[in-house]
Design a protein around this nucleic acid. Sequence first.
DNA 1: CTCATGTCGATACACTGTATTGATCCATGA
DNA 2: TCATGGATCAATACAGTGTATCGACATGAG
Lengths: 228, 228
Amino acid sequence: MTVWDRPEPPARPVPLDRERIVAAAIALADEGGLEAVSLRKVAARLNAGPMRLYGYISTKEELFDLMVDAVQAEILPEERPGDWREALRDLAHRTRRTVLRHEWLADLLGGRPSLGPNGLAVTEATLAALDGLADVDTALRAVEMVSAYSTGAIRREIANLRAGRATGLSERDRQRAAGPHVTRMLATGRYPALGRVVHDATHVDAEESFATGLDWVLDAVAARLHRT
Amino acid sequence: MTVWDRPEPPARPVPLDRERIVAAAIALADEGGLEAVSLRKVAARLNAGPMRLYGYISTKEELFDLMVDAVQAEILPEERPGDWREALRDLAHRTRRTVLRHEWLADLLGGRPSLGPNGLAVTEATLAALDGLADVDTALRAVEMVSAYSTGAIRREIANLRAGRATGLSERDRQRAAGPHVTRMLATGRYPALGRVVHDATHVDAEESFATGLDWVLDAVAARLHRT
DNA sequence: CTCATGTCGATACACTGTATTGATCCATGA
DNA sequence: TCATGGATCAATACAGTGTATCGACATGAG
């Protein structure tokens, strides 16, 4: 058997690690949303068979967990501002911007506890902002409230954004015209208060709306802090 | 051809409507979570072929929308309490209890705008609570903030509940021991504030935690109302 | 050089949402 | 009364999913 008869040995498989796998999955999700992430496509992007991934993760959910933790690194600020209020505000806005960069994050954030290193670091940073300003119980309550508001508000923002994209209307148009369906519903007269709002509310862009709500929430925190 | 040769005519198909379809889907979701809802299973529960459903809905997402709207009826109170604060609190707690009855709702609520009749009715009821107490802009901001907090907090509660069920630990144990993984992470010393909280925080059950956070949020609303 | 070990990928399975297609029914017009 | 048109429904089909199983093969030890 000469060299010419023998086939080349199979290419040594590309070395793999979780980081590479997660990066590929995130790239897919950034391009086509969460439903574009399939184990087959992730593996294909790494020149590997689908089953190869099961050495590094044991379920697709675990891949999602890793993805969330990876992008949560983008939330962490380099330096902590001195003021607690500024720190909390900054964290909330960084979270929002991160989700805007990775819209699929809205589908996962809050869906499971974030126990990865970066997820814990975000919680740590939030708690640290209130360090020494309140007893642990108050601080915990405050952090939970702020993050509940943030994730809820961000999720709605993304939902509206997607809905707007689907109907092809701009955000402004959607609030006013609200689409033929909502217009018809309002015409029934069964939603008077809602009708007034749709008709009279002054439009504010999403970031400002988020910021205002956040300010209210932070006011609530401030009230409890100073009471101590 | 005698009667004996001819087969019986095929059973007239069971009449179908969206209500029946949605009810079947909700039953499936209540039993086995959202991922237990497949068009095939829903159809089977109604003695119909899968394709039959496409006369009533044109996509699975639409079925989800209908499911959400259907259970949102459970949120609406029979009578509106006089006090705005009581009204908002009641709506939030009703939302929470509804999600606890239908855990899958946590995965959908906030994921898309709720534009069905009941979804709009919930928004209407929330807005109506503040009617005449503030200008439309303030009222809208308040409603958005309260509902962002509610959905965010409820979603986290369900997430924790599921995680606890998965590890078999009770809610109390999870907060203290937090599982071997978190214990190990805390031992690294990289999360000092978090460590203090896990160690020192007094345990409160989920409902009380939700109620407290909600009170803070409502305080923030009150502050803006009286300012007018 | 041989053998055991453990890793990798092909195959397979049960299942998904949905498009297409063909049969079967009812209501209508002649 | 019969034929015909149109609608309704079920069967089949397809491309894709997550994951279990298992055979082959390269690599390290003896």
